Simulated assay, not measured.
Amino acid sequence: MEASCSTSSSVRRRAPMTCYCNKKPVLVVAWTEDNPGRRFYGCPNYWSIICVSGGRKCRFFQWRDDEICERGKVLIPQQRQRIIKLEAKLVDCKKREKFLVVVVALLVVIFVVLCLLR
């Protein structure tokens, strides 16, 4: 039987009111190898080069989701890549569709002009 992901204590964590520099934390998705797709709260200044709160960077960090099982660490990145490729194909199809609409419109115009010239 195939191993599956299950969490015994799936506790939904509340968003913290403020971080260490009194800002409202933002919900972010991690895409690291160990935590693909796992959400966490972080200070809006967490990624900032500018130091805050008295010259020190605020490093507030709190996981929102439970830890991902080993199978999920493999499947989530695979599925994410699949989605990215499908989205790229969709964009390409939409570009082709627009091009075909323009071509058909031009052909209709040419047809009408040729019919009028007869």
Rank of each mutant, 00 (worst) to 15 (best):
K57G: 02
K94Q: 15
I84M: 12
D66W: 02
F60E: 03
K94L: 14
V104W: 01
C93D: 07
L114W: 08
I84C: 03
L106Y: 09
K98L: 13
G55D: 05
R59V: 00
C51P: 05
K94C: 07
K57T: 02
N22S: 12
R39H: 11
C21Q: 01
R96W: 07
F61T: 05
N35E: 07
E97Y: 09
S4A: 11
A15F: 00
G37H: 06
I76K: 10
A88L: 09
W63N: 06
R59S: 01
Y46K: 03
W47T: 06
V101G: 06
F99A: 13
S53W: 00
A15T: 09
E87V: 13
A88V: 02
V52R: 00
S9V: 06
L90D: 05
A30D: 15
D65C: 04
I84Y: 03
V108S: 10
V28C: 03
F111K: 10
D66G: 09
G55E: 03
W63I: 04
K85C: 07
I50Y: 03
K85G: 05
S53E: 02
K85M: 09
P16F: 08
R14H: 12
E33R: 07
P16A: 10
V108L: 14
K23D: 09
I68G: 04
Q62V: 06
Y46D: 01
F40E: 01
C43I: 03
R64H: 15
R71K: 11
V29I: 14
L27F: 01
F111G: 11
I110H: 04
R118S: 08
M1D: 09
